[in-house]
């Protein structure tokens, strides 16, 4: 399975993401600098990692979403490609228009870095199929702007179409409907604030993030 990690100035979870992907797929992902004009050919998955791209200037993810490589990422997603955005990557996907809504300043105004309990709200996606039905998993968050917001219609649509992938068991940031992660209409683009790549090894304190990567690899291999 061929994967790529997009790297922006200020990305800081790109190597953690690469390790998680390599472990699950057995192949090193291509690390693609944001100024590249085109993606490598034949990709199965693109990951947009966490970090503070462009110093969070203007709005988190806003400048990164207009980077040269993003035109190709958007094309890839629109053509049915799989794209995973974590934390700042989620913000970038929203700013690029691949996912609806907005990620606002945390309701408590504080940067929050801690492990949180998530409900796996749907198993109907390549990212969540390996988790048990109704599973609760512990995954760290580390963000200042993770307060998910969208119009009432969009929120209803996300719920009705079973596109809310993860919710917080104990809402840390004020997100509407406790949303921690959402899927695109074709269920192939996932954006989530928590960091599954940071709990991918017992040595890091847990492995609750692992099933996302192994499940994704299995789902794409059988697709």
């Amino acid at each position: 399975m061929k994967t790529a990690v997009i790297v922006f100035p200020g990305s800081n979870c790109d190597r953690d993401m690469a390790v998680a992907l390599e472990r699950a797929t057995g192949q090193k992902p291509a690390m693609v600098w944001h100024k590249e004009a085109a993606l490598p050919a034949g990709l199965d998955l693109i990951a947009i990692p966490g970090g503070f791209s462009f110093g969070d200037y203007l709005r988190c993810g806003a400048i990164a979403a207009r980077s040269p490589i993003m035109a190709d990422v958007v094309k890839f997603a629109q053509g049915g490609g799989h794209v995973l955005g974590v934390c700042n990557g989620f913000q970038v996907l929203i700013e690029a228009g691949l996912l609806p809504g907005a990620l606002m300043r945390n309701a408590g105004l504080k940067y929050i870095c801690k492990d949180v309990v998530l409900n796996v709200t749907t198993r109907n996606s390549p990212y969540t199929s390996a988790y048990a039905a109704g599973a609760q998993i512990t995954i760290p968050i580390a963000h200042h702007d993770g307060n998910y917001n969208a119009s009432a219609d969009t929120l209803k649509e996300l719920a009705n179409e079973d596109r809310i992938a993860f919710t917080y068991a104990d809402n840390p940031n004020g997100a509407a409907r406790d949303i921690a992660g959402i899927l695109s209409p074709n269920r192939r683009v996932l954006g989530m604030m928590p960091h599954p790549e940071r709990l991918n090894d017992a040595a890091l304190g847990g492995t609750d993030g692992q099933a996302l990567f192994t499940g994704l690899t299995a789902a794409l291999a059988s697709a």
Binding site: L58, R59, A62, R66, E95, A102, M104
Partner: peptide
């Protein structure tokens, strides 16, 4: 529309 504002919010 393209960059300076996020017209969702």
């Amino acid at each position: 529309e393209k960059l300076l504002a996020n017209t969702v919010i």
